[in-house]
Design a binder for these strands. Sequence first.
DNA 1: CTGAAAGCGCTTACAG
DNA 2: CTGAAAGCGCTTACAG
Lengths: 340, 340
Amino acid sequence: MITLKEIAAEAGVSVMTVSNVIHKNYARVSPATVEKVQSIIEKYHYVPNMAARSLVGKSSSIIALLLPMWYADTDSLLFNPYVGMLVGSLDMLVRKHGYYSMLCSFREVEQVLSFQGNWQIDGSILVLPHREDITHRLVEQTQTPLVVIDRRFDDIAMNSVTVDDQKGGYIATKHLLERGHRRIGFACPGYLTMSSVLNDRHIGYLKALKEYGLEPNPRWLFENYQQQEGGRQIGAALAQMDDRPTAVVSTEDYMACGIIQQLIQAGWSLPRDLSVVGFDDSMPSQLITPAMTTVHQDVRLKAEKAFNILLEAIKNDDRRLNRFYQLDVSMVLRDSVATL
Amino acid sequence: MITLKEIAAEAGVSVMTVSNVIHKNYARVSPATVEKVQSIIEKYHYVPNMAARSLVGKSSSIIALLLPMWYADTDSLLFNPYVGMLVGSLDMLVRKHGYYSMLCSFREVEQVLSFQGNWQIDGSILVLPHREDITHRLVEQTQTPLVVIDRRFDDIAMNSVTVDDQKGGYIATKHLLERGHRRIGFACPGYLTMSSVLNDRHIGYLKALKEYGLEPNPRWLFENYQQQEGGRQIGAALAQMDDRPTAVVSTEDYMACGIIQQLIQAGWSLPRDLSVVGFDDSMPSQLITPAMTTVHQDVRLKAEKAFNILLEAIKNDDRRLNRFYQLDVSMVLRDSVATL
DNA sequence: CTGAAAGCGCTTACAG
DNA sequence: CTGAAAGCGCTTACAG
């Protein structure tokens, strides 16, 4: 690895002249010198040492992608395909803008703060922050710009990008109502009251029912484990019920998949015997049969909005600009809803 | 952010004594001094500046996770759930061993080399390297330890972890043969001859057929687009055939999902009308109905083996130790194969 | 047990 | 247009 010093020696100029050429401060260097230095740079494939830059400058060019490990000790958040999609999209933006992505799996706020200090991170993006307490403390204590995806607090200045979850719950339910359903259940993981995301989706559900003059039936609120396992349990419960709904809105595609799978295995014909609407339009929703009608969110756009806010916060050197973007949602109609 | 210098000043000792305390060189510092310095470190939550360390030492503590962008210009490799699983597993190991993960999406070898120089990367792991030419050049030209996952070259020293693909193709086919099938097709993406991975799976398939005295039927070699789309095309083709197989081995779960989905939509009953075996045991294989019988590979173990080899290469300061590990595969029996 | 010195590769004022 | 100097935060010999 060749250094500025060696280039300077070979060109017979000072180190800072080479530095000026690299940074294209051509006003400060004669064209002849520029050319000479340039050719040596190319000859040796000079690449700057970012550690040295980071040390002297105020910027490290590193963006931290914060991945909480609040679910399982041995699982990475990247096992979740939605997170893969989000992190992948973010990384492409990071690279495109000349930054570098570092992964930071963490359990405690302190780990993030250490990490940020270790690398003089320019900014961070937090993904899938289900734990409200830790997220709140992180927002309070971070010393560098931070954007939180999928979570917003009203009592503190913060940057975030969320999805219009209320609308999502609303249009999912409304779609079923328009197809003639009046007995509509709601399926979600068992921490409905703890998660504003889930809670908003539920509020949207209630709102749509109300518009049709319907009362929610408490027996049709299915709280269970998350993902497929919970869905299978709910499917099994549905199969046992006398007074069952004709349709279910699920707050997760994976849970909806579990419901569908369980019932098909029990011999039901879907969507005839039960209509299901999922949430997120994640990959399996189009792989299963019947392909799932679901609430779509644009994950790439989400990444873009988050990154743009982060960029702005970095430029303004303001760790909490208090910027906010709410993504729209839309229905993707496939085959898991029957018209009554 | 407090620095060594400031801690030294407050403790009334030299910078290098503080450094010795941090590195636990207690033999070189009196217990009283250790305690005094320790308390100041804790009081101010000192964290080392990794850029400075990287600059002075030989190690940056950064591991690069190399993600080729040879598929689509706008897609990250992390959109692939298998890659998410792998990268997530790797990141957990990286963190556990005191390293840091940087993502490096790239298209050309030169980008990787620059990246490695920029950050004085300690080591790199390359994931999903379908492009043989670029991978080969990368192995030749890398200046730092590198482990390649899923690809091996015989003409050059390299570190790699692969899967016993030949065995995979063999046991998948054998399973069908044991269940009474004699008319068995093979479905794969259209670059069978270019990919040693796919080719090995095909060799295993042929070997199993041969054991049963069967000739492969060229009409039952289905090459198509990759993933679900190709599977759907193959499903459509199968639906049209007169002389069709009773079972298909697919080199990809996603492709197998497409086949299954297409045929169910065409009114077929699976596995009665067609048996399907997938490959990889990726997440959707258990979400669909019928749940898919597939060849399982242990992605976590794969990550572990790759990381261990990398660690060894780093310790030995040898960029091409020429270490190699081949993962075993096994059948996961679910519901997509009928007994004839 | 403790410290003064040199240096990693770069950038940032400053002087000419 | 060009350069000498200082310094970012740390570690590594070396001397005592």
